Amino acid sequence: MPDTNALFQLGIDLNRDSSSTQAEVLEFPVHPAHEVKASPVTSSDERKDFFIERDGDRFAGTHLIIDLIGASRLDDLAHIEAALRRCVEVSKATLLHIHLHHFTPNGGVSGVAVLSESHISIHSWPEADYAALDVFMCGEAEPHNAIEVLREAFSPSDIRVDEHRRGRGMV
């Protein structure tokens, strides 16, 4: 049963009821004023690919891999949720849903803000003052704007950012 052992190493015990694990899961619904309204799909909508053209390059979206080193407040769910919302706002993206999971006993947080333009994810290690984030957005969104929000929200001593243009050369 190598699959079972691998899942157990990830903290998933298939022989235990998942409701018995010590974790706090918080769902943050989108306020009705920010909700995306469904509209009928037309043939012109079906052809939109939301690919980006920049510097003579055509790609699906910008994916930022962000490391926050020497950061604070990485165990504060409400603060993390507010920071993710602010990242979405300044990036001119559309929030669909936020889901955060609070781990015990170290207080780390793992979660995602699901966007129409893709996502922002976070995983934090407060005991090491470290957080790993992915910011991936397509279309007209401006993911680089999230970097300053993260700097202000978590006061890291260092921020490391790697950029990857997803889907490069596809079209």
Rank of each mutant, 00 (worst) to 15 (best):
M170K: 14
I122K: 02
D17T: 15
N15H: 09
L26D: 13
L26V: 15
I66P: 00
V90I: 11
E148P: 00
S91D: 03
L115H: 07
H101D: 13
I159H: 00
S44E: 14
W125T: 01
S110A: 12
I52H: 10
A141F: 04
Y130T: 00
P105M: 10
R85T: 06
I69E: 02
D45C: 15
V109F: 01
V171G: 13
I98E: 07
I65R: 04
T21K: 06
G169P: 08
V109I: 12
S155R: 03
I120S: 07
H101W: 10
R151I: 11
A23L: 12
A78C: 14
D17Q: 15
H97Q: 09
E35C: 02
A60P: 07
G11S: 05
E27C: 11
K48P: 08
E163C: 00
A113Y: 02
A6E: 11
L95R: 05
H102C: 12
T42Q: 14
E163P: 00
I80H: 03
D49L: 13
A82G: 06
L14C: 09
E142G: 07
F28W: 12
A132F: 00
A113W: 06
L26K: 15
N15F: 09
L68Q: 00
H97W: 08
A82L: 10
S91L: 05
M170W: 13
A33Y: 13
E163Q: 00
S157L: 07
R165L: 13
V135Y: 02
L74K: 08
E117L: 08
S155P: 08
F154R: 01
V109P: 02
S157R: 05
T104K: 14
L77K: 03
L133V: 01
F28N: 05
D76C: 10
M137D: 05
D45H: 14
L150G: 05
D55Y: 06
